[in-house]
Simulated scan of single mutants.
Amino acid sequence: MADFGNEGMADLYRRPGETSTVYADVSQDASDPRRTSTLRQRTVAEALSQAGAPVENVAAIEAILEQPHGIGGPVSRLIVAREGVVELSELLPGEPLAELIVGHGAVPQLAPLLIQRPRDVTYVVAEVGRDGGEIRLARLSRATAIAEQSVAGETEFITKVHGEDNFLANGRYQHHTEEIWKRNEALVASALDAIVRDSGAELIVLTGDVRARQLLVDQIAPATREILTELPANTRSSGATNEVLQQELERHIASILAHDEYGALERIAAGAGREDGLAETDFWGVLRSLQHAQVDVLVVAPDAMPVDELIALDREPWVAAPTDDTLGATSLGPVPAVDALLRAAILTDARVVVVSPDELPKRSSAAALLRWPTVSSATD
């Protein structure tokens, strides 16, 4: 359950059977964490029962909430259970969206996950020293690294000497030592280039010895250098903590996601008045485009839906208005409109961006960037 990108969401959306969903603020009260946990479980159990969740789902969710998560500061957890089995349990660091959101029905309520983690960002942490370095490949949806590589270079004559005796010999020794450092970082650079090339990573955070960082940056490929940011700290030294590194990662990942959102909104604003039909800002037009798997990027404002519910379907076209023909698909029943739209987007491999209404043209509730023009625009 730790690895939960969009493919995992699509799988969750496809499975049959009703689900119980809980989004809860699980930040601990440092003065009395046990009391915080007990009160939260009691509140969640009552809310789930009122929503119609079966007892086996309530028990499974309570068991997850009893587990210590080990994350300091504000954090929330999203849990989805079906037939007594927890299918999703995601910790989402950062300020919670609400104290508690609970639901039960045909479609899991994954909007909080898409708000706080719109997509899965792949990134690399490289910690280097003059003897080599460690490289970790990670994803935003994973609690631990998905791959790790240690690069060990030469260690003989790795330390420079100081003193005035035999200046010429010392000079040759210093030069030899510098060459060893350079060769060691060339090994790290080669490994780092390969990882970036094969993984499609969008960010590298580089830390470690200052001279090692300089030598590494001089030897990496241009494509690697483009996504690299240096952290002026040696997290590889004894006694170092990862707090500063974690803050740097969070800041840069947030910047990547904000750039995604800005780019989508900018393209929608630019295309809203054009005749090429590649931007849709009408809610019902967006719905029709989702039904045709035409949406490349779905932008939604959850608090501005013009209808409370839409119909979820068991197969294509995945979503329908209450009056629509379901084209042979079986209705799963009415679900909250935003959940129906998000499900249809994920199941048709569209990217999702969640915004507030005032960020969309004419304060729309939904907009989309399309994969191909609408029929009317293409034939005009």
Rank of each mutant, 00 (worst) to 15 (best):
A106W: 10
R15M: 14
T19P: 09
A194V: 02
E90Q: 15
V295S: 09
L113Q: 05
N242F: 00
D325T: 04
T21M: 07
Q116H: 10
M9E: 14
A258P: 05
L39Q: 13
R136K: 08
P74K: 10
T38L: 14
A301V: 10
D303Q: 11
G153F: 12
R183T: 01
A320Y: 02
S150W: 06
N184T: 04
L313M: 11
T19H: 05
V188S: 03
H292P: 04
N242G: 15
T19E: 08
Y13I: 00
A45Q: 13
A378D: 03
V205S: 05
L113A: 03
I311G: 02
T348P: 13
A152R: 14
A59M: 12
P112T: 12
A378K: 04
I61N: 08
V300A: 11
L203I: 11
V319H: 07
V55L: 12
S150L: 08
A320Q: 01
Y123T: 04
G84S: 07
R14P: 09
Q149R: 15
A304M: 03
I253R: 05
G103C: 04
L110S: 11
A186F: 10
W181Y: 11
E309C: 01
W372A: 11
A312P: 04
M1T: 10
R197C: 06
Q28F: 07
R197H: 12
E230P: 11
D282P: 00
D314P: 01
R363D: 13
Q109Y: 15
G73H: 06
A60M: 07
L206W: 06
P68Q: 13
L228T: 14
H104C: 05
D358F: 10
D324G: 09
R288D: 15
L231W: 11
L327E: 15
A293L: 02
G133Q: 07
T374H: 05
V124W: 08
E127Y: 00
A304R: 06
S37V: 14
P112N: 03
L110K: 00
L257R: 09
D131E: 15
A312W: 01
D25V: 00
E154S: 02
P357Y: 12
G105M: 07
L341F: 06
L347R: 14
A329L: 04
A60G: 11
T235N: 13
E83H: 07
A201P: 11
G328F: 01
V286H: 04
E243N: 11
R274C: 06
G73A: 13
T21F: 13
D308G: 13
E275N: 14
S331G: 13
D303I: 00
E46P: 07
E230S: 07
T326R: 03
V307E: 06
T122N: 08
S237E: 14
T379Y: 07
E46L: 09
G273L: 08
A367L: 06
L228I: 03
A81S: 12
D198G: 03
A312T: 01
T241C: 00
H175R: 15
R251M: 09
E83K: 06
G200A: 02
